[in-house]
């Protein structure tokens, strides 16, 4: 690993200033992705600014039911928090479906949102990759793309976003609190990650030096009837091949409202608005759930080796929503 400088931030403003002043500086939180990528030579920062002593480490439920989560809350602590475990099962389940105990004990909220793709070409510095080295090309389109995107990709890049947590948060309309050189702002999670287009190296709408300080999950009346279902190549400790976060509100056998987001199929956590629109007001049956998934996947552009994800996601949607409908009827 290349030598780098390391400083510990004592307050957010100094952390922001320090990183803003140095184009090759990066924020460090749990280190479960950044340190890994530094060892592979994919990330090559000159300076790491350690955020782990900053006070963004609490989960607070506000009077209106909004859950505010500090960026430094560890994945395992967040999954176990009563407001999440009981009130937002899809989020708790998504967190526990990710990584291993060791990694969940270190990984933070902000770091999880900003983790990089697991595309093998991105992680191998001897290979071309438009995301790592703009303009160098994308071998994945013809090469190993079994676990890459079927939605939202571009000619330049078909990488997927690997987070489980972010898929649940996308379904919940989470907002991201950001502190930057020009002050604080809040952005919908839906606008945090950028689609690759011609610039896959621009993965987020954050500017250099902007720091995620936390997220806010607005109240959702039927969030207790929600689930996260993840399909992977082995039963534990693997990234998703396809995943679905869902919350369902059924009355008299009819879908009153629904939230759906897909993981491991797109460059960002994929909120399935078309599926939601197709489902509202329809009977809560497997046939409706299937039709809704198909409405979303009409835009899918699968490649040679990942076309299986289209029926797979469809089946996971049907299964997840059917289970939730069973609970609510």
């Amino acid at each position: 690993m290349r030598p780098f400088q390391f400083v510990r931030a004592d307050d957010a403003a100094t952390a922001v200033q320090t990183v803003t002043a140095n184009p090759k500086a990066k924020f460090l939180a749990g280190g479960t992705n950044l340190v890994d990528l530094m060892k592979l030579g994919v990330e090559r920062p000159d300076l790491l600014v350690d955020l782990t002593r900053l006070p963004f480490d609490s989960v607070d439920v506000e009077a209106d039911g909004t859950v505010r989560i500090g960026t430094n809350v560890r994945n395992s602590d967040l999954a176990a928090h009563p407001a999440v475990r009981n009130g937002l099962p899809l989020l708790s389940q998504a967190l526990l479906a990710g990584a291993s105990g060791q990694l969940r004990n270190m990984a933070t909220v902000g770091g999880n949102l900003l983790q990089r793709t697991r595309c093998v070409y991105f992680q191998d510095v001897t290979k071309p990759c438009n995301k790592r080295q703009p303009g160098s090309g994308c071998p994945a389109r013809q090469g190993d793309h079994r676990n890459l995107a079927i939605l939202g990709a571009s000619e330049a890049c078909i990488a997927t976003h690997p987070s489980d947590m972010a898929v649940a948060l996308a379904a919940l309309d989470a907002r991201v609190a950001v502190s930057g050189p020009d002050g604080d702002r809040e952005t919908p999670l839906a606008e945090l990650h950028a689609l690759p287009g011609e610039h896959p190296e621009q993965e987020t709408t954050l500017r250099h030096g902007e720091l995620i300080t936390g997220i806010a999950v607005p109240p959702l009346a039927y969030a207790e009837r929600s689930a996260y279902r993840k399909v992977r190549d082995r039963a534990s400790y693997a990234f998703a091949v396809a995943s679905v976060a869902a919350a369902l509100d059924v009355e008299d056998g009819v879908v009153r409202d629904v939230r759906l987001a897909f993981g491991a199929v797109a460059p960002k956590p994929w909120r399935a608005h078309a599926a939601e629109d197709a489902l509202r007001g329809r009977p809560a049956t497997a046939a409706s759930f299937r039709a809704a998934a198909e409405a979303e996947l009409a835009a899918a552009e699968p490649l040679r080796d990942n076309a299986f994800k289209v029926p797979l996601i469809t089946n996971v949607v049907v299964r997840t929503l059917s289970d939730l409908a069973g609970e609510t009827s």
Binding site: F6, L28, G31, V35, K39, S76, G101, Q102, N105, M106
Partner: peptide, 23 residues
């Protein structure tokens, strides 16, 4: 040295972590 194998697991503040990823 990538947090994948767990052979460096220690308790840090009472929780299991991969010591290879902690600065």
């Amino acid at each position: 040295e990538q947090g994948e194998c767990g052979s460096c697991t220690v308790l840090l503040g009472g929780e299991v972590v991969c010591a290879c990823l902690v600065g």
